[in-house]
């Protein structure tokens, strides 16, 4: 029980139904501080719904979800989970700095924190640029910077590397690894399977059910495959 009382995420028998369809079926897992977890699965498998459930913005059908030892949705959790949604969720008609200043203000953070997160995502030289004039990758980095404000103990990142070039992807994964080493629990969804290798632990979703929960090496072993693509296909299609 000692270990579970320190979990960042504690999900027990979580079910979510939408209009009679089961989106998540009996999901259970725990995540400890400092874990870098990859959430993989085909589109429509429930990745986003699971992430939104951890954030408290998804109506749950049954089961229990605790984040940082508090029931999900409780007011004390607001601002303690950094969130980056699919699609950037930034104000396109504000500058980079104005975006960060607003969210930092809501979180009661000092101006220095805005400078810090701009540096982390290498947007300092873009501070005065309107978000609408940024490239897709730069908008993604701004969205990530907002999620990093205040160094929250948990980060939930929904497809943060989609549409980015390989160099930028590599840099972002380095950032995630550094954050995890510093004790942040990082949950990253992706459908780029090679990115799986960056994570110490993988959760594989199929049709709303948790199909696999172990290390990347175990994924290859379980599927009897040498590449993540093949291992993923075999598990998803139920061959392995």
């Amino acid at each position: 029980m000692e270990a579970s009382s320190q979990s960042t995420f504690e999900v027990d028998d979580l079910r979510v139904e939408r209009q009679g369809n089961e989106i998540l079926r009996s999901i259970s897992f725990r995540a400890a501080p400092g874990e870098l977890i990859g959430l993989l699965g085909p589109s429509g498998s429930g990745k986003t719904t699971l992430m939104r459930s951890l954030l408290g913005v998804q109506a749950l059908t049954s089961g229990s979800v605790k984040v940082l030892q508090s029931a999900v949705g409780s007011a004390s959790l607001r601002g303690r989970i950094g969130y980056m949604a699919q699609g950037s969720a930034i104000y396109l008609d504000l500058t980079v700095e104005e975006n960060l200043e607003y969210f930092a203000g809501v979180l009661r953070l000092a101006a220095m924190e805005v400078e810090r997160v701009m540096a982390v995502v290498a947007l300092t030289s873009f501070a005065g640029r309107l978000a609408s004039s940024l490239s897709g990758g730069e908008q993604t980095r701004l969205s990530l910077a907002i999620a990093l404000l205040g160094s929250p103990p948990a980060l939930i990142l929904d497809e943060p590397t989609v549409g980015l070039d390989p160099i930028l992807r590599r840099d972002l994964w380095r950032t995630f690894e550094e954050l995890a080493r510093a004790g942040t629990t990082v949950l990253v969804s992706s459908h780029v399977l090679d990115e799986a290798a960056h994570c110490a632990r993988l959760l594989l979703l199929r049709n709303g059910a948790l199909l696999f929960d172990d290390s990347p090496a175990q994924l290859l072993a379980a599927a009897g495959a040498t590449s993540y693509d093949v291992a993923f296909e075999r598990l998803i299609e139920g061959v392995a």
Partner: peptide, 13 residues
């Protein structure tokens, strides 16, 4: 629709 409202709802606003 842009998602900033959802983001704000995860923050103390």
């Amino acid at each position: 629709s842009v998602g900033t409202l959802e983001r704000l709802f995860t923050l103390p606003l």
